[in-house]
Write a protein that binds this DNA or RNA. Sequence first.
DNA 1: TCAAAAGTGTTATCCCTACACCCATGC
DNA 2: GCATGGGTGTAGGGATAACACTTTTGA
Lengths: 274, 274
Amino acid sequence: MEEYKNETEFLKDYNPDEYEKLSMTTDILLVSVSSKKQTNYRKTSKKMMSILLVKRDEYPYKDMWCLPGGFLNPKTETLGDCAKRVLKKETNLSDIYLEQLYTFSELDRDPRMRIVSTSYIALVDKNKLTENINEKASWFDITLLEEDEKKVDIVLDNEEETISFTIKKTLKEKTTDRYKYTTIKNTKIAFDHPIVILSGIERLKNKINYTDIVFNMMPKYFTLGELQQVYEVIQNKKLLDPAFRRIIADKVEKTDKVQTGEGHRPSALFKYKK
Amino acid sequence: MEEYKNETEFLKDYNPDEYEKLSMTTDILLVSVSSKKQTNYRKTSKKMMSILLVKRDEYPYKDMWCLPGGFLNPKTETLGDCAKRVLKKETNLSDIYLEQLYTFSELDRDPRMRIVSTSYIALVDKNKLTENINEKASWFDITLLEEDEKKVDIVLDNEEETISFTIKKTLKEKTTDRYKYTTIKNTKIAFDHPIVILSGIERLKNKINYTDIVFNMMPKYFTLGELQQVYEVIQNKKLLDPAFRRIIADKVEKTDKVQTGEGHRPSALFKYKK
DNA sequence: TCAAAAGTGTTATCCCTACACCCATGC
DNA sequence: GCATGGGTGTAGGGATAACACTTTTGA
């Protein structure tokens, strides 16, 4: 680039087409927790983590599932705006928790053109969702099976179809816990989205321990049992009741409301303490 | 976008110019720890955190300081490749610890054109640096003054010039510790780089507590006193010796080597335990 | 001899784990 | 009555903070 003394001189010469350009997209990993009805009237409904996928009806990756996403309009919006716009289109909801995950820029990401994509994770309480979700979209329950430190199997299920893919983890840096993810088995998920999904889930798993992020997936009033189940399903391990209650005690506020009709002692309803 | 049955049909119609495009850059926050010589022969050299800035000699922001960075070549490289290339150019070093920070996409970032920029943090041991750093580049010692929760003053000093800027922190989400940073006083730093600098420092401050990231800024052999000083300067607080030694005990390995000639009892040299 | 930092041991405190236990409900 | 989840108390162990103390050097 040449040297310019001032803006007038610069703009006289400046030709934007000199610079190599590219397209950007945002991909959104929308995460929620679903409840499976139990046959035993006493038991509480089983919780599962679930994510929203969209069926592609165009080239490339036609008929495969992908994360909701869209092209950035460089003239009018930031990446955050773009992510919000996509979410609004897919779920008809605004005011969803949204956090930037990572910017992926592999050269062979899209066979059409050079694309860089910034991924976001979004959290939502499923109760807030109306029936207005996009007809091409579907919620999949997600299960992570970590065979060992180096390999993760991910199973997605939307009650009509079961999808699974496998990701290999290779340690990139000894000093941190940073891994390079490589998809080694995948036939149904488009683009590099298997990696975006795993990255997002791992981020959520981590962040639940040192933030209050989980309350973005909860309704206004909830029982401590429900809250504990969400922690358990995200961290994928059973927690001890008394320990859990102590940990979240100062994050929640007990209300007068009570949850009855569950086949056991009624539970107090709590809300997030602001 | 239209619907296509297969690639041939798609490519026949496909015109890349239909899509809005933009330019991308990477900005790199290169962080190191510098040692200030002490007048008292007994005292150990005082440590400071320092970052590399480059003086701009072109429009826009001519004569202001900015982070090393450069345009992404979309045809040939990923963002990580681009960051490595910039680092190589500025410091003549490869194999530097590099981690993606955040992708900034404010509309008014650059008056010339629409740019999205992905920032990276890079850590380096200053002893490895030869004299080959770019002539426009200079190391600045950095001091963070947190007046209160909402405001941070940052002072940069390269022994010729002192720069300071102020950033306001506004809580974005109650559920996490995410803040929106706004520059409210700044005359010497170009673009949105004040915010990139603060974000990077905060990340480092956090990550030092749960990873071994600090060893990327250390020489192969070091004393525990030196290591402790680096922790102290990054976390900006004094640590107690016995506590510190217990915490890092299983991360380091004692060697036969000893550091003498320091005006006090010689200290054992340690290395990072792989 | 002395200042400075290297390096170690000890206690008091806090926090978390694990377990035991009681409570209240719907069928 | 009983299975189920709601909800609470407590003892034991491990980690940490704070402090005191000894060691070793160069000038």
